[in-house]
Design a protein around this nucleic acid. Sequence first.
DNA 1: GAGCTTATGTCAGAATGCTGACATGAGTCA
DNA 2: TGACTCATGTCAGCATTCTGACATAAGCTC
Lengths: 149, 149
Amino acid sequence: MSQDSTGVDLETSLGYLLKEASSALRAAMEEALRPFGMNVTRYACLELLAQRPGLSNSELARGAFVTRQSMNVLLQALEREGYVTRPAEAPVGKILPTRLTPLGRQSLEKATAAVRSVEVRMLAGMTGPEQSEAFRLLQSMIRSLRDTA
Amino acid sequence: MSQDSTGVDLETSLGYLLKEASSALRAAMEEALRPFGMNVTRYACLELLAQRPGLSNSELARGAFVTRQSMNVLLQALEREGYVTRPAEAPVGKILPTRLTPLGRQSLEKATAAVRSVEVRMLAGMTGPEQSEAFRLLQSMIRSLRDTA
DNA sequence: GAGCTTATGTCAGAATGCTGACATGAGTCA
DNA sequence: TGACTCATGTCAGCATTCTGACATAAGCTC
């Protein structure tokens, strides 16, 4: 009996375990990215831009799971440091499409190997079907949380 | 072909999906806890103390997945507001065992129902065996990330 | 006991992310 | 056209969490 009637047993809670896994992944990612002077959000932003050039600030924010205000601060820094470019004026509406510079692309490529090795490490010990199942189950959780919101 | 040889395809990355799930859970939790003037870390701290009274600052930090410095800031606030108590002097070593006050316990109980409903919502659509499998797979990821660190 | 390593509590400063607010542009609809 | 709604970019202020640093206590080894 590790649990009274009113509490949430942390030892058996999937939510708690999900947070633990995310925390472990984040720590491993930050550690892997630190030698490149990068953090997780910064890397996510660059990776998103590599795969879908021209994303707006708000789209990048949604993709990196931060608010558009936070992403705006980050983009201003990246722009100042020469990793990305944005047009001075919006070609349409207020959206400023962002693109990687050669410097940004180069910086991303250095970090990518480190990030990939973290993911490989995380999945070591899981079979292909198990990885597919994990993918499916996580998608189910996300959908349930969003739909009923 | 959505993927060149150097990148990490975010659409199929389990790491990215794990971050997405964690982000969705966190958002749902923060929203559920806001009416009670609480956030996730604060709730985790109180819940840990309810289940294992007398935990030290460092142990609470590990349980809530923040640094001990962050937990120290939080504990000082909780103590000031009367939710927890710590002895003025360490009974042994430097460890200050923390305990919930009646006010802290009462505050926790109010929040618990909200938190539990979020977890139930997240698991809607998953069978019992699927939940067990998700638990097992997340544990595997955590172990792999930690062991090879 | 002396020395080493590890863990703890704490302070200070910096980085990061959030909420609130505002102005502006696009789309919809009557 | 005008009114309404929604999404966007941005500024400001605040909250949260982090890294770095220090002193101290426990445990272990010699």
